[in-house]
Design a protein around this nucleic acid. Structure first.
Lengths: 99, 99
DNA sequence: CTTATACATCGAAATTTGTCAATATAAAAT
DNA sequence: ATTTTATATTGACAAATTTCGATGTATAAG
């Protein structure tokens, strides 16, 4: 359960949610993220560490740059946890409206 | 977006996740929750306030007792936010495996 | 080789959060 | 009426979190 707590903690910050929105389904480097956020570079680095440590984001070094992308498995598992583990819904109840 | 941040913040605490697990799909009073947690009564009251303020839990007073239950709509919306809003998946992509 | 760029780490300050003891409130039991 | 029970609120404190400036570390460019 501590893993899940860590994930929700990571998601519970406005700047980090903004970061995830910017990344979206792409792969984005830190310098690009900095352009869209009103925080300093060390602060961004700190947030990226939290997002990576929780498993929400994964990083790839490419020369000078570090590229980040969202780890969709983690997101999927966490969303499933919310609907299934936490509230006893079956997968059928929690999705597939009308299937 | 601040509403979502508030929800994730509320979920990002081990005791509050335990509380949600205990409540499950039932309606539970505070005194029952206290039996299962290793925290004092004021602390529980504090946590319940956070869960209620975020919309995850709703409360009903019944004489001396306060009964809590999980607000499934909030959970559903948040899980949808994770899969759809945050990552641009369609509902079809994010669920309904094999439908 | 020197400089510039992209990012990480360190140390410190300010804010937020989790917890408890003490107290308050309100309903039920005696 | 008084006491007990269930819960909320207040005030205080320690711990965690967010942020920044300064500095470190690679890599690329000149």
């Amino acid at each position: 359960m501590k893993d899940v707590v860590k994930i929700f903690k990571a998601l519970g910050d406005e700047n980090r949610l903004k970061i995830l929105h910017i990344i979206g389904s792409q792969e984005v480097c830190a310098c690009k993220l900095l352009e869209f956020l009103e925080i300093g570079q060390p602060t961004l680095s700190h947030h990226m560490k939290i997002l990576c440590d929780s498993g929400i984001v994964s990083s790839r070094k490419d020369g000078k740059w570090t590229h980040y992308k969202i780890n969709k498995d983690t997101i999927k598992h966490t969303a499933d946890y919310m609907q299934v583990t936490l509230f006893g819904n079956t997968a059928a109840q929690s999705c597939c409206n009308g299937c």
